[in-house]
Design a protein around this nucleic acid. Structure first.
Lengths: 375, 375
DNA sequence: GCGCGCTATGACGACGTTGTCAATTCAATT
DNA sequence: AATTGAATTGACAACGTCGTCATAGCGCGC
């Protein structure tokens, strides 16, 4: 028997009345109102338990009349199937495990989880989520835990796109990697956003609007997307005939993820103070664009009239809060999750599969941070 | 048997080599490598299954020698306990359900989930997460699903602090509400952030630094926190002797959450254009502060020398990206989750409990967006 | 030498569900 | 009228684990 302490509110008097304390009883731990089982339903409906089972699972060979009687009994008794018992017989849990580093606890890529969940809901699957927090011992534990729940498959999700080998603990549970891909390029199917194409589209967008001097503030090079985005920028500008002289590229951040050194503001200020300053700046991501905005404004430049700015990710908390709103390329997190779940399901059902890397494209989201460049 | 289609990468040639396709085999659906059970371990160790069970659960009355033999067998066979079977015997699942509107799929309050998960990990509990997406039919389904998994208790979490009655489906599963509280003030314990105290601290912070003309840009009044924060601001300034004339309060947003009308930029511009403009502005939250920054800078004002700004929430993607970094009050999401989980656990264990609203304070996070006011 | 209490172990059943197979009914076909 | 076969139903076992209870061995005190 436990007694809970009540911490009094620190709200001012006016709000104190929201704090109340009522005593009530619950059945003592032992006498939990035990769940009605298939047996009680069978008794109530006057049929065998197998028949009830048939009704529940929509199997054939049940008279309409019996079916109705059973359904009534189910409703009356409030019967709810016991998944654990079901699993123990059928050894298919209809559960997917999501294992992530930080994703479900971090603002950036939660949409992956949303995509997975939506698919799971629509298809009667249950989702078990676990975060490693980056620890690989924890990861091993989680795989064990998943196995002890007899999950049907694993979605291995990372917060940032990266290359990583899951600590699968040598057991072969069907697995799909989302937002990452395996180091040892075997076995595991993976699905990732197309950073290259996203940055390419963004670069073309600027070029098509007449910008010929373009700045680029780089993402932390640790991140896999950083290289791809920059490379896309370089190649695309060069295809359009721009030379290295027309570009102005600097590093925005480096260091360990979550505790990086931040040079964005300084780099942007530097870049925009030049006489032949760029007429447009591509930002490694949306957050960094905040600092570019501030740097530009501090120099008295107007956006987009004096400088155009584009971001990357479409992290909406930022892109919609900036004024003018930020044009960017949307990372297809939701689709990644949804497709990943679907793929995993196929994997579980199928006998032979073709593991492969798949890539989902980034959609350019046009807002108002880009103007036409000088003629 | 399913064959997966391979979508070719849209990466440029250079990156095409990351896309590969290998064919490999898994056992056909039927012949799943069936899990080793307690029985096989018993056979291997030459003991009865009950003895194995004893070893697994650390029960007494097992010789050191037998224990070791059994443990060896467990390791050799890679035995992993079957939770479902365990549950079916003990009817205690050691699983908590989290039911939320959007929380785990939205960037703002993910830390609640992190807090819950951390507690759960440390205490051997499993977490089942489900999102209603705001639909109450979906909510009913979820409660059913939870029951069919025989979860021990529910954490009912909302993205924004609000008043709401869970659709518990008249079954009494122990429940703790996090970041929200029940409309009908009975039965359900709840735990919320102390918006009032947070705003009070922030207001005092500004007052103590000599600010005597203060602006306030209001959060969407739909949100429960909005009223509390504003009220704290009003009362605290008045306690310090400021009058209505010293304050400049305007609405930043209204309309339905997720699709609100945004007046922040305009309101901030308006406020800062006045001759007797405030020397400090309190923002309803951190995101809104982005627009206040931009508005200030567009008017040629420096932060914090000309205007000080404080936010609310400590949404770090924003507070750390703004330059100068934003001083704010941190919503104690992580603690809310952790304490909520702990509380739920006590609830499940206890016989009599005192449901109550608890409140967790917001910590002021001092960064560099506030200067001393005019002397 | 006898009974007592403690340690160590196993046999067996039960949990809630579904798979297997047999039994029954009834209509259609020969 | 006998045979076939499909529709409908139930009896029973089995899944993996743990609780209950029984059994066996052993040292101890009288």
């Amino acid at each position: 028997m436990t007694t809970l302490s009540i911490q009094l509110s620190t709200l001012s008097e006016k709000y104190v009345d929201v704090v109340m304390s009522v005593v009530y009883n619950r059945p003592a731990s032992g006498e939990l109102a035990d769940m009605v089982s298939i047996v009680s339903v069978a008794k109530a409906a006057g049929v065998s338990n197998k028949t009830v089972s048939r009704v529940i699972n929509g199997e054939p060979y049940v008279t309409e009349e019996t079916r109705e009687r059973v359904e009534k009994a189910i409703r009356d008794l409030g019967y709810i199937p016991n998944m654990a018992a079901r699993l123990i017989r059928s050894s298919r849990s209809n559960t997917f495990g999501i294992i992530t580093d930080y994703v479900s606890t971090t603002p950036y890529s939660v949409d992956i989880v949303r995509g997975i969940q939506d698919w799971a809901n629509a298809n009667g699957k249950t989702i078990l989520i676990a975060n490693t927090g980056g620890s690989s011992e924890r990861e091993v534990e989680i795989w064990k835990m998943f196995q002890s729940h007899r999950i049907d498959g694993v979605l291995y999700v990372t917060m940032y796109r990266r290359i990583v080998d899951p600590e699968t603990g040598d057991v072969s549970i069907p697995t799909v990697m989302i937002n990452c891909r395996p180091q040892t390029r075997e076995l595991l199917p993976s699905i990732e956003p197309d950073d290259y194409q996203g940055a390419q589209d963004l670069t073309r967008y600027l070029l098509e609007r007449g910008h010929r001097r373009i700045g680029y503030i780089r993402l932390n090079p640790i991140l896999l997307g950083a290289e791809l985005r920059l490379e896309a920028f370089r190649r695309t500008t060069s295809e359009f005939g721009l030379t290295e002289n027309d570009l102005s590229i600097s590093l925005g951040m480096d260091g360990p993820v979550g505790a990086e050194n931040n040079y964005v503001f300084a780099a942007a200020t530097e870049m925009l103070k030049q006489d032949d300053r760029p007429t447009a700046i591509m930002s490694g991501n949306d957050e960094m664009a905040i600092q570019i905005y501030i740097a530009a404004m501090a120099l008295g430049l107007r956006i987009p009239q004096d400088v155009s700015i584009v971001g990357f990710d479409d992290f909406r908390t930022v892109t919609m809060a900036l004024k003018p709103e930020l044009t960017t390329a949307a990372l297809p997190y939701y689709d990644l999750g949804r497709e990943g779940a679907k793929w995993l399901n196929d994997l579980i059902a199928g006998e032979k599969i073709y593991p492969a890397s798949r890539v989902v494209s980034c959609k350019l989201v046009e807002r108002s941070s880009v103007a036409f460049g000088p003629r």
